[in-house]
């Protein structure tokens, strides 16, 4: 596949809709296509039921959509999605393959890259084309302490786009594209890692990933009881509660609350960090917030480097007065 052309996006579904991350990846692919003189953008989507997602893919920027519908894809087992993505890359013979760094993408994209004879540009914040038409990505490394720029040396290049780093295109229903069934035989034997049980623990109230306001607590809160005022604050201003990894590792809150490199990435308008020192691996999950507000007793804490407003003080004294004052203002 040395002479690839065009960009293939590995799509994901959210229910029976095209996932937002895939609309973002299509938007990135269209920009890259522009830089390559208008090479075509294709999309592959696979599932037990695709609903209207293929058409949504065209509206969001795809010229060709390859579809796979199979009961084997129920619950999107990574083993099956890897097989689909590999097949789509053989058929489309692209220059670049772009996916999203999601729960599924983290399992699928490295395997796809290695099957295609290369390695993955992981967790990319930006993607661009260099003068030799190589795909070049910037990505956080060392827990966000440094930013690396990597160039993909093989064709196809494979990259995982960090969610929420690119604005999706406005859906355009007048865009014209082609929907094709991908020629692949899937049966249950492809799935080697079998899910035998799944426990969903839906978050209470607003989802962290969608929240406009996030109130997060760290080790500085001293224990699980420290989160009670944070929950009050979150419900007062319509936000969600988050936590640092130390808090989840200590068992104060379930891991679903964890914000950071290995937890959730949040992009609220306002991120209030209480008793969080701001280790780079935590900041990797919240640095895209429009404004960070920090309350911490240590004036040298890293969190203040990225905060817009800060209070150096004892959260047990700062927070109740802060909440009371907000209460008054919001009445």
């Amino acid at each position: 596949m040395a002479d690839g052309q065009g960009i293939l996006v590995i799509g994901e579904l959210a229910g029976s809709e095209l996932a937002l991350v895939t609309r973002e990846a299509l938007s990135a692919a269209r920009s890259l296509s522009g830089a390559l003189g208008g090479e075509p953008v294709s999309l592959v989507i696979a599932g037990a039921d695709l609903g209207d997602a293929p058409q949504q893919g065209i509206s969001a920027g795809a010229d060709t959509v390859y579809t796979v519908v199979s009961p084997v894809l129920e619950g999107t087992p990574p083993d099956a999605v890897v097989a689909v993505a590999e097949r789509a890359a053989q058929v489309a013979s692209p220059r670049y393959v772009i996916g999203s760094k999601t729960l599924l993408g983290r399992d699928v994209l490295p395997r796809v890259a290695f099957r295609l004879g290369t390695a993955l540009a992981q967790d990319c914040a930006t993607l661009e084309v260099d003068s030799q038409q190589r795909l070049v990505a910037t990505r956080p490394v060392y827990g966000g302490s440094a930013i690396a720029k990597v160039a993909c040396l093989q064709t196809p290049a494979v990259a995982a786009l960090r969610p929420k780093s690119v604005e999706p295109l406005e859906p355009d229903a007048s865009r014209i594209g082609e929907i094709k069934t991908l020629d692949i035989q899937l049966d249950d034997s492809v799935v080697k890692a079998r899910v035998v049980d799944r426990t969903e623990r839906p978050s209470e109230g607003i989802r962290l990933e969608d929240a406009k306001v996030v109130v997060s607590g760290g080790r500085g809160l001293g224990g699980p009881e420290g989160f009670e005022p944070l929950k009050d604050l979150a419900s007062l201003i319509g936000g969600a509660v988050g936590a640092s990894r130390a808090v989840c590792d200590a068992g104060w809150l379930p891991s679903s609350y964890q914000v950071g490199l290995t937890g959730k990435t949040v992009t609220p308008d306002l991120y209030i960090a209480v008793g969080i020192s701001g280790a780079s691996q935590h900041m990797a999950g919240c640095s895209s917030a429009r404004a960070i507000v920090a309350i911490n007793k240590d004036a040298g804490a890293n969190i203040f480097k990225e905060a817009r407003f800060g209070v150096v003080g004892d959260w047990q004294k700062v927070l109740p007065a802060f909440i009371d004052q907000l209460h008054e203002l919001l009445q």
Binding site: T118, L120, T138, A146, A148, V150
Partner: peptide, 8 residues
């Protein structure tokens, strides 16, 4: 597969 071309 990849080459590091920048670090900051």
């Amino acid at each position: 597969g990849l080459e590091l071309v920048g670090l900051a």
